[in-house]
Design a protein around this nucleic acid. Sequence first.
DNA 1: GTCTATAACACGATAGAC
DNA 2: GTCTATCGTGTTATAGAC
Lengths: 223, 223
Amino acid sequence: MAETATRGEQTRALILDTALRLFEEHGYERTTMRAIAAEAGVSVGNAYYYFDSKEHLIRAFYDHNAERHVAASRPVLDSERDLARRLRGVLRAWADVNAPYHEFAGAFFKTAADPHGPMSPFSRESAPTRAQVTEIYREVVAGSDTKIPPALRSELPNLLWLFNMGVVLYWVHDRSAGTAKTYELIDRTVPLVVRLIGLARFRVMRGVLDDLLDLIRSLSGAT
Amino acid sequence: MAETATRGEQTRALILDTALRLFEEHGYERTTMRAIAAEAGVSVGNAYYYFDSKEHLIRAFYDHNAERHVAASRPVLDSERDLARRLRGVLRAWADVNAPYHEFAGAFFKTAADPHGPMSPFSRESAPTRAQVTEIYREVVAGSDTKIPPALRSELPNLLWLFNMGVVLYWVHDRSAGTAKTYELIDRTVPLVVRLIGLARFRVMRGVLDDLLDLIRSLSGAT
DNA sequence: GTCTATAACACGATAGAC
DNA sequence: GTCTATCGTGTTATAGAC
């Protein structure tokens, strides 16, 4: 593609890369905008020219990693048909992609938690990136040979995205070496989730499931 | 009890009350420590003498509201035996108690999301308050006449506390008038939860449930 | 449109005197 | 316990250069 990015794009990328590196090295809070600008060899004003705020650097990082997550999910989506393997592969891909940033992910998570802020994963500004990731889970479901109750099928990608958010929640709190516990969480919850999906066929579960889906449809859009 | 609080306790309470009032009136971010100190008639340094940081004011608020939640849950716990009614009553009590602070709860939520920060509901510093609230859910279960599978019984209070956190997550994002949607969420999820607990008796569910409980025991304590 | 340099502002937080 | 003075940092403003 375009080997030659415009000068602005280059500067923007330089500032972002520098910021991410300093965040990795010294943490988010302890990295000042002045330090980022100095290390990148630009003025503070220039950094603010490309990023409206320090938090917007996190958003750029978030969008960037969502794309890497999509790419890292490609192999398993192209090679596996079993639902559990597909889901497990995509979640592990997420953890792999984000591993280098685990140290400062807390700060990222904190700004993401601001309910009406632009960084919230539920916000309008996050909609494009959210759609991009939800699309992975649509493909996880669509490309699987596992039988899925039709009532559940359309809502399932959104539920799996929510499940992904749950894994993120555990991950940011995970202090085990190499976030081993998060990988264990993925490996052990995925079979449970798939079994629950299978259980949805049974008469006794159908009542609960239908009510749940009905509830989700009626309450979505609180933000 | 002690009609005469020490001077320190009085000053502390004065600062806290003033802060909460200003948070309600102008929001958390827009209320400065200078404004709190000025309005309370003390110096900024004195405010910091009693509260290590602005966020610690939120912690004091959180502890205070946990106590009010316990008190507000008393009536339903003393009068109802049905599990669904008890659970519903306690959750609605939480929403009632926190209603006046919904506007600035987002800021509170944001600082609570910092994984290794002292405000995280999973942190060691939060353990006493968390225990206090979990105790409500232990009582919800213990005082109920609904049949609960023994395997589930001991872990259930913790799971219900987690469920409460889920309701909080929805609540902070809820922009409906009077957070009507949150009350709807409570009213409609509680029967589902209770039905799921009942389903735990069935053979097909037992496998999933046992694995889940096993997983929880093995992964708890990631923080 | 892209970038620099410098100063200034607001606010959370701290130091040290009394 | 309480105060005043001061610091560090995110952010903005100004005034311009290429």
